[in-house]
Amino acid sequence: MKPRPSILLAVSAFALVSCGKSGPPARSTGFSVALLTPGPISDAGWNAGAYEGLKAIEKELGASISHVQVKSPSEFEEQFRAYAAKATRLVFGHGFEFQDAAARVAKEYPSTVFVTTSGSKTAPNLAPIVFELEQAAYLCGLVSGRMTKTGKAGMVGGVELPSIKSTFLAYEAGFVAGHPGGTARPVFTGSFEDVAGAKAAALALADQGCDFLFQNADAAALGVFKGAEERKIRAFGTNKNQNALSPAVLASAVIDMPRAFVETARRVKDGKFDGQTLRYGLASGVISFVWNPAALANVPPAVVEETKSAEEKIRSGAFVVPRGNF
């Protein structure tokens, strides 16, 4: 039997021809902002935070907004180009992985600003957002240093990444500042999801005499909190406000992602974007140190006061928190 060319070939060819002559795409007017997320915005986490930021930009800055979920790395460049071609003023790529594609497209569309959430590449119209969580981690360390009885603190991390180690460096600096001669020990479980492993690490640290635990372990943080509850020691929340998750949480080092998006968009709208890395710390309000109201009664008022004045020094730039070089 002789094969025949598929009718589908003809149909798609017809579609090609008939659609080729529609008019030029509508140009957006005014301030337009777009967001590329690597996952669904219903994830109640990384992507949801970015979309919340985009909605806030619409509301606070009166921007016209658009969002697209990118399904694989092969689409990064396509989506950036599509938005830039429509003269979108600002396009966010929500993750380090968008850097390469953003850098390529940024060269061709100088009037569109490209911002990646984390990363290091910069250009006149390209910059990454960097969250200075270290500033709040330092305050956590300072509090633990002032309150520790044993002079020992533990730090539980997921995967041993430079960004995680950087927050540990800051926590340790704070701890030693609050308790000269104190030691802070890091443990990496190798996973951001392994709750049981994080709990085991927390228990081991407690058994070595640590009476405060800092963590940067994402979902596995729950294990650290459970371990701290069992040994009746204190722990800290990170990234999100985790104060309600456990009575063992003394305070949280919080990133307000939507706020970073709004601040960035405002800078672009006001013509103040200069292609420099967008660093957001305590001063911008994007990073904050939040006491757990349920645990605050156990904190000496002098420690609360000292934390407040240290925070002021960091905000004003009088004190620079150490961070990893990565």
């Binding site: 579609a15 090609l16 659609c19 080729g20 529609s22 030029p24 795409p25 180009r81 599509a82 071609a85």
Partner: peptide
């Protein structure tokens, strides 16, 4: 249609 075959890009 526009986004698949509507322009050279």
């Amino acid at each position: 249609a526009e986004g698949s075959v509507g322009s050279r890009a």
